[in-house]
Computed example of a mutant assay.
Amino acid sequence: MTAVTAKRFSIAEYHRLAELGFFEFDNRFELIRGEIIKKAKKTTFHSACNSLLLGELCLIMARSACVRGQEPIILPPDSEPEPDVVIARNRFDDYVSSHPLIADILLVIEVSDSTLDYDGLLIIGYLI
């Protein structure tokens, strides 16, 4: 019997696939532990909660940290999730040169009514 193994992708390979237009027609993917995962559709409730949370955090944090909404973070060697909210250290280039790395991240928040077990455990596992 032949064993079957899934292809795991590095962050660099994932970026190359994006450059080649692999995700052109549907960009709702993220790289999780080397696997390209289709993200769940956002409900109206999820979107409303996320928007309210981002608004409040931007007011609270003002300019003391960078508040990012649904933007990628880099979790080497093989994950680039897009959590709902990330509070990251201010950086001189405002994250133009790269997404936040583990050392930049102060807080990750995942707003969820259906995928919390999966999303929350992924990020906690990397940050501990």
Rank of each mutant, 00 (worst) to 15 (best):
M1R: 07
M1V: 10
V4L: 11
T5A: 09
S10K: 04
S10L: 13
A12C: 09
Y14K: 01
H15C: 08
R16Q: 15
R16D: 12
A18H: 01
E19W: 05
G21N: 11
F22H: 14
F22N: 13
F23L: 08
E24N: 10
D26P: 02
N27Y: 00
R28K: 04
R28V: 01
F29H: 03
F29L: 00
L31Q: 00
L31D: 05
R33C: 06
R33Y: 09
G34I: 02
I36V: 03
I36G: 00
I37D: 05
K39D: 05
K39V: 12
K41H: 10
T44W: 14
F45L: 13
F45I: 14
H46G: 15
H46I: 13
A48M: 09
N50F: 12
L53N: 06
L53W: 01
L53S: 03
E56L: 14
E56H: 08
L57N: 09
L59G: 04
I60L: 15
R63W: 00
S64V: 02
C66S: 01
Q70I: 07
E71Y: 00
P72Q: 00
I73V: 15
I74N: 10
P77Q: 04
D78Q: 01
S79E: 05
E80I: 02
V86Y: 00
I87S: 01
R89H: 03
N90P: 08
N90C: 10
R91M: 04
F92A: 10
D93S: 02
V96L: 08
S97M: 03
S97A: 08
H99V: 02
H99R: 03
P100I: 02
L101P: 01
A103C: 14
D104R: 00
L106M: 10
L107R: 12
L107Q: 14
L107M: 13
V108Q: 11
V108L: 08
V108F: 07
I109G: 13
V111F: 06
T115M: 12
L116Q: 15
Y118A: 11
L121E: 10
L122Y: 11
L122W: 13
I123E: 12
I124R: 14
G125W: 07
G125T: 12
Y126Q: 12
L127N: 09
L127W: 06
I128R: 14
